[in-house]
Design a protein around this nucleic acid. Structure first.
Length: 587
RNA sequence: GCCGGCGUAGCUCAGUGGUAGAGCAGCUGAUUUGUAAUCAGCUGGUCGGGGGUUCGACUCCCUCCGCCGGCUCCA
């Protein structure tokens, strides 16, 4: 099973008139390129399209552009905007185009890509012209609000073997207000960055001494994880799954049979020799589950088998791609394998989608969409199995009312799949769950079950993961909640804040009573003003604070403050009830 | 892996070819406080590792490691 890997996408919240905005951004990219050409020598242009959030332009030039140069470039861009240069469309012959692009090697290659017979157009503003399909604004004066954001290397045509160009990313909007909103959203995303919050809230860490991409879960992070896992386990039992535990290493032979050593070796770590056999740390769990399947004769009456495991796997990821919890080298998949008959397949797929849908709603992810990937050119498995699988995937999505796009031919060679994408609290989309058919492994491992006819049959096998990777899911969850975990997940649900030393004993006493009710509570024993204690609890994002002074002790009422700042007096009994309710409803 | 940037105390950051600084956190003491920062003192660093240049390197150079932004990759 492959791992979902989509990086965050800041969604186009501000795309009112999509095409207009695209044109504006594309035109702004041209203006940026024009500015760069004015400011630097020997600029080789590649392309400068609009993107979901802005635009970029790729250049090759001897000078290294750094963010310090942005001000200078933006200033020149503003000058070009002020000059109000018209964007003029020029239709030219191929020969003319070639002569216009002398010395521009990337552009010449791009020109060569344009099919014979197609119209070749240039867009010119001032003395800057660019091979471009357009369309563009009427003139540079129509550009209002833009900002350069970053500069980074980028392979020409995205190919590793090609030269590396410099890509300047920027964004543009129709007015300053929308630009401001967008920049604010970027800031908000930065504030929620799970790497930052992970340190601030003491959730996890990564250590040079251990190695990059290897996660250490601190008590608070581990507490949250254990709650998530417990929830996950409970839900799986409820939904007809059984849980497995399997080894973290296996012999070379196993990975040869599975095909991993053939197709996936670069993602696997070097073997270790034990008693003259090579053992590999596992990059996937499937072969182990398959061996359990094969440990006995299976009847059609035993199927479907739904086997899940929180299986920790290790995969080699290139150093440059590691990213906090989102891209790591050791992670735990919430993996499951479903073995079933052809008659059962449709219902099984439907159940997986329904199941994952309810799980997502629990975490407050309401918007779910899907990608359906179908048979690629090179594929294993009989055509009618592919057809049946795809039909079952489609009808499951339709039954659950999940909107989906079809990626024709985008499936893995071993089977079609569905990837589910969710939208987080600030509108970013993440690819999470994956449901993949596998026509390969049952063949390779010669899986069978005995049918009603007494004959051996090949079972269907489906891999599925809901969270994908617990680490990655946790990272996304931190950003989704901005670190303010709801009460059922919060590692510290209540903090008692004694007003003075006089209330320490009473505070400890309340904590004892809450702990008896399985409420996660601490007492702030420090001396200091109540304002400071509240501030600390707020910064730790504790859901409930109990301010305890003489008044409360006398009246027997608790002064409950939640982290939104709302205050309410209630009895201990009522407070316990309140928290238990919040935990139970997972509010 | 590639391009660029960066690496100074637990955290956020200042600093400079001449023996390392601040705020927060931590510790100690004072304070005993009513809804987002009480005061004071103290502790804390092989300035990412290694090598070089130099009378002298945190500072300049080389190299390795790691992080950040991208690209690429993710059967």
């Amino acid at each position: 099973m492959t791992r979902s890997n989509s990086k965050r996408i800041v969604c186009g919240l501000f795309m009112k008139n999509e095409t207009d905005l695209e044109m504006l951004r594309h035109s702004t990219a041209h203006v940026m390129a024009a500015a760069v050409c004015r400011l630097y020598n020997d600029v080789h242009l590649d392309i400068g399209p609009s993107t979901d959030d802005g635009f970029y332009y790729d250049f090759d030039l001897t000078d290294r552009i750094t963010p310090d140069d942005f001000h200078k470039i933006e200033k020149e861009m503003k000058a070009i905007v002020k000059e109000d240069l018209p964007f003029e469309r020029l239709e030219v012959s191929r020969a003319e185009a070639e002569s216009m692009l002398v010395g521009q090697k990337y552009k010449l290659e791009r020109l060569a890509d344009i099919p014979e017979g197609d119209v070749i157009t240039f867009y010119q503003c001032g003395d800057f012209f660019d091979l471009c399909r357009g369309p563009h604004l009427e003139s540079t004066g129509q550009i209002r609000a833009f900002q350069l954001l970053s500069v980074a290397g980028s392979y020409y045509r995205g190919k590793e073997t090609n030269p590396m160009l410099q890509r300047i990313n920027g964004t543009a909007f129709t007015n300053d207000k929308q630009l401001g909103l967008y920049l604010k959203q970027l800031e908000e995303a930065k504030k929620r960055d799970h790497r930052k919050l992970g340190t601030e809230l003491d959730l996890f860490s990564i250590h040079n001494e251990v190695g990059p991409g290897l996660i250490h879960w601190h008590p608070k992070g581990a507490r949250i994880r254990s709650i998530i896992e417990e929830f996950w386990r409970q839900e799986h039992f409820r939904n007809g799954y059984e849980i497995l535990y399997t080894p973290h290493v296996g012999k070379a032979n196993l990975w040869e049979t599975s095909g991993h050593l053939n197709f996936y070796a670069e993602g696997m770590y070097a073997p270790m020799e034990i008693d003259k056999s090579d053992y590999y740390v596992r990059p996937m769990n499937c072969p182990f589950h398959i061996n359990i399947y094969k440990s006995g004769l299976r009847s059609y009456r035993d199927l479907p088998l739904r086997w899940a495991e929180l299986g920790t796997v290790y995969r080699y990821e290139k150093a440059g791609v590691l990213h906090g919890l989102l891209r790591v080298r050791g992670f735990t998949q919430d993996d499951a394998h479903i073995f079933c008959t052809p008659a059962q397949i449709e219902n099984e797929v439907k159940e997986v989608i329904r199941f994952s849908n309810t799980i997502w709603k629990t975490f407050g992810f309401e918007k779910i969409t899907a990608y359906l990937s179908t048979r690629p050119e090179k594929a294993v498995g009989e055509q009618d199995r592919w057809d049946q699988a795809i039909v079952s995937l489609k009808s499951a999505l339709e039954a659950e009312g999940i909107p989906y796009e079809v990626d024709e031919g985008g499936g893995a060679f071993y089977g079609p799949k569905i990837d589910l994408k969710i939208k987080d609290a600030i509108g970013r989309e993440w690819q999470m769950s994956t449901i993949q058919f596998d026509f390969n492994l049952p063949e390779r491992f010669d899986l069978s079950y005995i049918g009603e006819d007494g004959e051996k049959h090949r079972p269907y096998m489906v891999h599925r993961a809901l969270f994908g990777s617990i680490e990655r899911f946790f990272g996304i969850l931190v950003e989704h909640y901005g670190g303010a975990f709801p009460a059922w997940l919060a590692p510290e649900q209540v903090r008692v804040l004694p007003l003075s030393e006089d209330q320490l004993d009473a505070a400890d006493d309340i904590a004892v009573q809450l702990r008896k009710e399985d409420i996660r509570v601490t007492v702030d024993h420090k001396s200091g003003k109540i304002g400071a204690k509240i501030r600390n609890a707020q910064m730790d994002k504790v859901p409930y604070m109990l301010v305890l002074g003489a008044k409360e002790i006398e009246s027997g009422m608790l002064a409950v403050r939640d982290r939104t700042g709302a205050q309410e007096d209630m009895t201990l009994i009522d407070f316990i009830e309140k928290i238990k309710n919040a935990v139970q409803t997972k509010a």
